[in-house]
Amino acid sequence: MDSETFNLPQYEIPEDLRHAVAVTTLDRLYNWGRRSSVWPLMFGLACCAIEMIAAQTARYDMARFGMEVMRPTPRQADLLIVSGTVTKKMLPPIVRLYNQMPEPKYVVAMGACASGGGPFKEGYNVVAGIDKFLPVDVYIPGCPPTPQALIAGLIKLQEKIDRQIIKEASWYKRKVKDPNYVPVPILGPDLIDPRRAADIKAAAAQEE
């Protein structure tokens, strides 16, 4: 960012200091730092993961946007790219990985499967969209999305980061511990979402 656009509050800077001093807001500085170093979790589920890898290779080069540092451990990651079909068997590990990521954290649903089940929605082992469990920030359509589409989605995420305000960010609120904690689903006769246990019990009692 050059000093012209960085000088957001429109203070008049004296001519001789123009290239040395900029006045900006804390939010803008802070978000500029965060959006330029989003570290995704090195986490592939299915077909989309291959396009995610392709997006990092020389032709598409995600590194241009500060996102090339894939971290295999969730403790160092900011972004969970759910790249592929989410199965019921895989869901508990995914939720655990999400819970282990430090705030602030973001989720991108890459492709039709992660967004809503895609072609496999009717499958008995398939979760129809990761948004039934995790809060999703950006959905990327496609089956699989091309690397260009993935990069476009990640730029959308950067725009979202740009607009966040530190004073209102949920992860800095004092009283709330772990604001985005998601209870880990249980593998029963079918997938049990602990948050919906009462619903399930009521519906199961009524089944003919």
């Binding site: 009717e122 398939v126 006769p189």
Partner: peptide, 24 residues
Amino acid sequence: AEDLNPFGDNLTFPKNFEPEKWIP
């Protein structure tokens, strides 16, 4: 598809299933 399923999702449970008593 969610509207057609009694559990509102891609789920099937045996009759009178009680999730809180389930031991994985």
